[in-house]
């Protein structure tokens, strides 16, 4: 657990530092309470403190890093697919983009049965249409291209 400790420790310290810096221009209103910056500064201080402890723990740790990082790329690719999905929703709408994304994800995870590749995306879209849009009256984004 050496690398994760050090990484999360450093991120925690940086995050605490950055937010502390941002609190510097918070105004102190003339009221009885502690002001806008007081508690966020405490939180930042704590983040820095815990970050330092984690960092020390990480440096002292000499155990082997047992976690293989080989598989991360599969998770990263799926994140990219979902990111693309989210980015196109405003343009091509929820239904088309969802069907495309589910299809891509299925294909990506080595599903080759034509029945599955067609029925799962369509079934999912139908489910959202019936439950969310019709039953629960959620307004599902249609996309600017179809307006």
């Amino acid at each position: 657990m050496k690398v994760p400790h050090i990484t999360s420790g450093i991120i925690s310290i940086c995050l605490g530092g950055l937010f502390y810096y941002l609190t510097l221009d918070f105004p102190k209103l003339n009221t009885a309470d502690t002001g806008a910056a007081f508690l966020p500064r405490i939180y930042c201080g704590l983040l820095i403190l815990f970050g330092i402890i984690l960092l020390i723990q990480g440096i002292r740790d000499h155990s082997k890093n047992e976690e293989s990082s080989q598989t991360v790329r599969y998770a990263l690719i799926s994140m990219v697919i979902v990111l693309a999905y989210i980015l196109v929703i405003p343009y091509i709408g929820f239904y088309v983009s969802t069907a495309l994304t589910i299809f891509s994800l299925l294909f990506f995870s080595k599903v080759r049965k034509a029945v599955t590749l067609v029925s799962v995306p369509l079934g999912a879209v139908l489910f959202v249409f019936l439950v969310f849009e019709k039953l629960l009256k959620v307004s599902i984004p249609m996309g600017s291209l179809f307006l």
């Binding site: 690719i77 990219v80 697919i81 693309a84 999905y85 980015l87 196109v88 343009y91 091509i92 983009s97 495309l100 891509s104 294909f107 990506f108 080595k110 600017s144 291209l145």
Partner: peptide, 19 residues
């Protein structure tokens, strides 16, 4: 598989650029 995945992604990206 990865190539195909990336291909789909790039198609989607083009769709964004287009609009």
């Amino acid at each position: 598989m990865k190539c195909i995945g990336l291909f789909i992604v790039s198609v989607l990206m083009l769709a964004i650029a287009g609009c």
